[in-house]
Design a protein around this nucleic acid. Structure first.
Length: 309
RNA sequence: GGGUAGGUGGUCGAGUGGUUAAUGGCACCAGACUGUAAAUCUGGCCGCGAGAGCGUACGUUGGUUCGAAUCCAACCCUGCCCA
């Protein structure tokens, strides 16, 4: 007898494509609960800028993976994967349908492909050391070559300019004694735990960009600047949280590096570019069923219902 | 009205007689992506063509020249200064 893996619905899509509304509609219809897949909504006190769904919007549907870490803590995909799977398990135990929803492709893939992240200690001192070397003239080039000697396979895909990934290759080796390539091979060993059904929302690019622009204006009206001011007051450091779109620009504005108009334009522009990158990511998965964000929501719900049977 | 600086590809901005379809930045498009991912990086980017290539381009119209975005003339427009 074949044991079927439990079904898990995944809905991805660029910012401002209507994921929240669709997911809640769907959850109501199929007795589902929502697992957020968003690298910024995990942070507490970052509500407006991360477009977190409000209590009213949630309409009583339980949401997981929102407000789970403090902005002054370091977070990572590995952490996400672990906790999100626990959430999925919990929902399944309740005989409900897990709906993973969000725009962070890396996080979504960690679930969809069942990537197992082995323990890798974060060594702040080593990171620092590497950062300093990278700052020197030809420093990055040296690190690139060093990484290439360690793991030429991984480095084939990494540009000599890609500091972040070069550092990562070195860090992995530094703290585990294994290469990134070895780690990746191990990470896929266990296979996928659930029967993921992936849907992605797309929409006319121009309309999407319009919606993004409007949403940024709305965020400002809702008090994004005040939100950032409060964050800065409340927390001392932001190892990962301040990478969030909208947040770093407001900080620049508060520091006098940008005028208000420049800040607004920059947030809009960066958000548009981000949306484009998200779409690129989602296109990679050929199993994905695409939805048109501009078509009727009930229609999209039906497509999803059809896609999970 | 006088003087002066200028008008370059979607935009900003180099280029001052020929390897110039025109450096670069930005936007835009496409792509990559396994522990910072709303991050980081790569490629393309006048039109047509798979390509060789062809066509059209540096305010306008003429001119000089074997050859002009680059020199000359007139005109149009913009900024600044003086009236």
């Amino acid at each position: 007898m074949i044991i079927l893996k439990p079904k898990v619905i995944v809905i991805v899509g660029p910012t401002a494509s209507g994921k929240t509304a669709l997911s809640i509609e769907l959850a109501k219809k199929i007795n589902g609960e929502i697992v957020s897949c968003d690298s910024m909504q995990i942070y507490k006190d970052m509500d407006i800028g991360s477009a977190k769904p409000s209590i009213e919007e949630m309409q009583g549907i339980k949401h997981y993976m929102i407000d789970i870490v403090s902005p002054d803590e370091r977070f990572s995909v590995a952490e996400y994967k672990k906790q999100a799977e626990m959430a999925i398990e919990e929902i399944l135990q309740k005989q409900k349908v897990p709906i993973v929803i969000g725009g962070t492709g890396l996080y979504a893939d960690s679930l969809i492909y069942g990537i197992e992240y082995k323990e890798v200690e974060f060594d702040a001192e080593y990171r620092n050391e590497l950062e300093n070397i990278a700052k020197e003239p030809n420093g990055l080039e040296g690190l690139y070559n060093k990484a290439k000697k360690l793991d030429s396979v991984a480095m084939e895909k990494i540009s000599p300019n890609d500091k972040k990934r070069i550092l990562r290759v070195l860090e992995i080796y530094h703290s585990t004694g294994k290469t990134k390539t070895e780690m990746e091979a191990e990470s896929r060993k266990n296979g996928v735990k659930y029967d993921y059904r992936v849907f992605a929302i797309d929409m006319d690019r121009e309309v999407l960009y319009e919606r993004i622009n409007k949403r940024v204006d709305l965020m400002l009206e809702m008090g994004l600047v005040e939100e950032v001011e409060n964050l800065l007051k409340k927390y001392k450091e932001f190892p990962t949280a301040m990478q969030g779109l909208g947040y770093k620009e407001v900080v620049q504005y508060l520091n006098g590096e940008l005028t208000k108009e420049e800040m607004i334009e920059k947030i809009k522009q960066e958000t548009r570019r981000y949306a484009k990158r998200q779409l690129t990511w989602f296109r990679k998965n050929k199993q994905t069923i695409w939805l048109d964000g501009l078509s009727d929501m009930q229609n999209n719900v039906s497509i999803i219902l059809g896609g999970i049977n």
